[in-house]
Design a protein around this nucleic acid. Structure first.
Lengths: 233, 233
DNA sequence: TACAAGTGACGACGAATGACGTCAAATAAG
DNA sequence: CTTATTTGACGTCATTCGTCGTCACTTGTA
């Protein structure tokens, strides 16, 4: 930040950030190494797990030396958090994109969006490494990781709540009711993903989607019933 | 099992299992120590967590010497599993008892049973140590623990599925549909418990129950609709 | 009272890990 | 071509943990 580009200077330290190597600049090299560690983290955390992972193992998997690990991450926990966030952001983007693409106007489009979002979620979870990192390994690591986990599923639930509010205009929930409903449906997907993974993917992805969707439709249909027409029970 | 009681024998080893100490027999002492370790495990795993727990810390918390740890458990993972199983069994017994006591015959009794089961679940989860062990610490420890976790929530889901099958006699789900529904509603409770814990118990226990119950009622009502009366959408 | 068994406090030893340093090879700039 | 920087391979050191052993004290029994 001190001197972005010093031209025609005969000093021996032209750039404090370093010099190009292998045809690419220092910043690009650093980013490339970070990516390698993110990939290595997904591979290690997603297979042998986070608890037994060591810095040496991660560096071997990444094909880099120990020194570069600390260049990008202060600890294995930081790497786990970065791997988790990258995977969950990808999941969130896929779900959001699927919902928006399926349509967001009429109830038909919203229901199609729910199905598309479910398909995107199970598609991401079909990679056992991603599923294991996002649904098993990140839990119980540290308060910091737990907070990120909580925030992620809070957002996932809010997305569902938002759809429910559009599908059921008569529904006037309290803040707790709205949150619990969204988190609940998110949890319905979440635990099914966990069981799907731990069960060795015994069911096909489409079967999981088809079996999960009725949960959403049932809740949405019930919420859409106007309050004045009270059902017999 | 070899010699339960050897009487009037002048041998110096009257009982291979040991002698009484402190007024209680060897088997009772051993069981008492095991209980102390289970309590210590709940305290340690439920507060500072499993990852950072050591044998020494557990023994200090239990007020016992290192030697006795290996008398009852082969590793800290075994203790975690035992603590988890004890807590989850208590949860399961409380839920089952609440459901059976609330009634199991007519639909009214079944719905009351659902509420009672929810109340029992949240009551157990109100202890942050229990909640943390059952919903955070046991995840991603080892394949063995994961299998136990999977089996526990499989049973929890089957309990819900059984109630749904009684409430909706017309519902003829496939094996996958039945399992996914039960696991899904179990997951709805599960993730809400997790968020309740990670959110510092910001909502009251009764608010959580009252906000979670509509999820169950909505699904159950929808399933109870006969198949011939198809709703407009 | 004397002796054996149970118990607790303490330390030792090997193994594994995080963190850092050194040295030679590869690469780019003058 | 020469030189300085980057990179990779390897080793070292302090720390921690699991595990086991020793020794003194307490308790029950002869």
């Amino acid at each position: 930040m001190t001197s972005n580009k010093v031209m025609a200077s005969t000093t021996h330290s032209p750039d404090p950030a370093g010099r190009p190597y292998g045809g690419i600049g220092p910043a690009a090299r650093q980013a490339q190494r970070q990516q390698s560690f993110l990939d290595a983290g997904l591979a290690v955390f997603g297979t042998s797990g986070y608890r037994t992972a060591t810095v040496r193992q991660l560096c071997r998997e990444a094909g880099l030396t120990d020194r570069y690990f600390y260049e990008s991450f202060a600890s294995t926990e930081d790497l786990l958090l970065a791997v988790y966030q990258r995977a969950f952001n990808a999941l969130e983007d896929a779900v959001m994109g699927a919902i928006l693409q399926a349509g967001s106007g009429d109830p038909d489009g919203l229901m199609a969006g729910l199905r598309a979002g479910l398909e995107a979620t199970y598609a991401m979870a079909a990679d056992p490494r991603v599923a294991r990192v996002c649904w098993l390994e990140v839990l119980g690591v540290s308060p910091r990781v737990d907070q990120v986990y909580q925030g992620n599923f809070e957002r996932y639930g809010k997305l569902i709540t938002a759809i429910a509010l559009q599908l059921a205009p008569h529904w006037k929930p309290s803040a707790t009711e709205a949150r619990v409903l969204g988190v609940g449906l998110a949890g319905a997907v979440s635990l099914n993903v966990t069981q799907w993974l731990l069960g060795g993917y015994g069911d096909s992805q489409s079967d999981m989607v088809n079996a999960t969707l009725p949960l959403f439709t049932a809740v949405m249909r019930q919420l859409a019933i106007p309050p004045e027409s009270s059902s017999p029970r």
